[in-house]
Structure formats: C-alpha cells, structure tokens
C-alpha cells in the first residue's frame, strides 16, 4: 500500500492504495466515481477518459502510483454544482447521447479541447474526439453539440 495525495474534482484527497491499480479502478472503486467507464482496457475506446492536469487521458493507462500531486477531473466534477457545463447542456439539446456509455469520456475530451482551443473547426473537433469511440450516434450530433458550445463561448452576450 502507498499513500497517494491528489486532487479529484477540486477536492484534495488522500488514499492508501496498491500503487499498481489503475486510475480507473481507483476512481470507480475507492471514490465511487462510476461515471468513468471501461470499454476496452487498452486505451483504444476512450470511455475511461478523465482530465489529468487539464489534459484528456485514458484512465485505464494510468496507474495510481503515478498520480500523486496531480489534479483529476471526472465527469462528476464537470458540472458546477447543479449548473450543467455548456457542453453537457448542448449534448442534451442536440441529441448527442444514445446509450450514454461513451458520453462521459466524450464530454471530457470535448471540454479539454474547448479549454485549449475555444474556436475549433470541424476537423479539430473530430480530431479531439477520435479517441472516443461511439457505436450509437455516428458522432454527428456530438460534433454539432461541440460546435454550438464553442459558438456560445465565443459570443459572451449569450446566456450560457
């Protein structure tokens, strides 16, 4: 067992774990953050995407022993209390969700993109979510939702 300190969804936490368990297991099992999903376990599907220090990573490829001092954001931490993140709202409005299994990872990948590049073109959006497989939606409504969010971010007059 190793003691690890890190920040999850804005909270400082300390946990004693086997260092070799994967970040996804740490989040799901020790913190009950089950919004992070496992689809492949080899970093191909992106369902386990979380943000680590603001960057999208596959939490199935990170070991608990590697995250000491890092900041982790999961889907549960994206909404500001009960106010949805604009991406979450637009995923709803654009029908970007079907089965919902890829949704948490997809939303987080898109949010990492918008944080870095608030005005992405369609290719940049596609590239940002290329590591998030979705079998239901054909991605179209997801791309629309991200585009619309970017538009809102860039027109401050509009209420988010």
């Amino acid at each position: 067992m190793t003691e690890i300190k890190f920040i999850v969804n804005g909270k400082n936490v300390k946990v004693a774990v086997e260092p070799y368990i994967r970040l996804i297991d740490l989040l799901r099992e020790k913190f009950d953050l089950t919004g992070t999903k496992e689809g492949c376990g080899v970093g191909e599907c992106g369902a386990c995407t979380v943000l680590m220090n603001g960057r999208a990573v596959n939490s199935c490829l990170v070991l608990a022993g590697q995250i000491d001092g890092n900041e982790i954001l999961t889907i549960e931490g994206l909404a500001n209390h009960n106010a949805l993140h604009p991406l979450q709202k637009n995923f709803l409005l654009h029908g970007a969700i079907q089965c919902g299994f890829c949704t948490p990872g997809m939303v987080l990948s898109a949010s990492a993109l918008l944080n870095k590049n608030p005005n992405p073109d369609e290719e940049e959006i596609k590239d940002a979510i290329a590591g998030n497989l979705c079998r239901c939606t054909g991605y179209k409504q997801i791309i629309e939702a991200v585009k619309e969010t970017a538009k809102e971010i860039n027109s401050p007059s509009k209420q988010l």
Binding site: Y20, R22, V42, G43, C60, L61, V62, L63, G65, Q66
Partner: peptide, 29 residues
C-alpha cells in the same frame, strides 16, 4: 521504466511475458 504507460500498462494488465519479473516501475514523467 514507465512514462506514458500506453504500452506498459496494457502489457502488465494482460500478463505479457515482457513484464513477467517486474517488481518496480520507475515513472520518469
């Protein structure tokens, strides 16, 4: 040595022979 883990972690997870006797991972990030 582990850096990104994109090769090491799935290898460990699947019990690949490459990691058969590993006891320590050195994270060089």
């Amino acid at each position: 040595i582990i850096a990104g883990g994109t090769d090491v972690v799935p290898g460990l997870q699947q019990g690949s022979n490459r990691f058969a006797n590993s006891e320590l991972l050195i994270d060089i990030n």
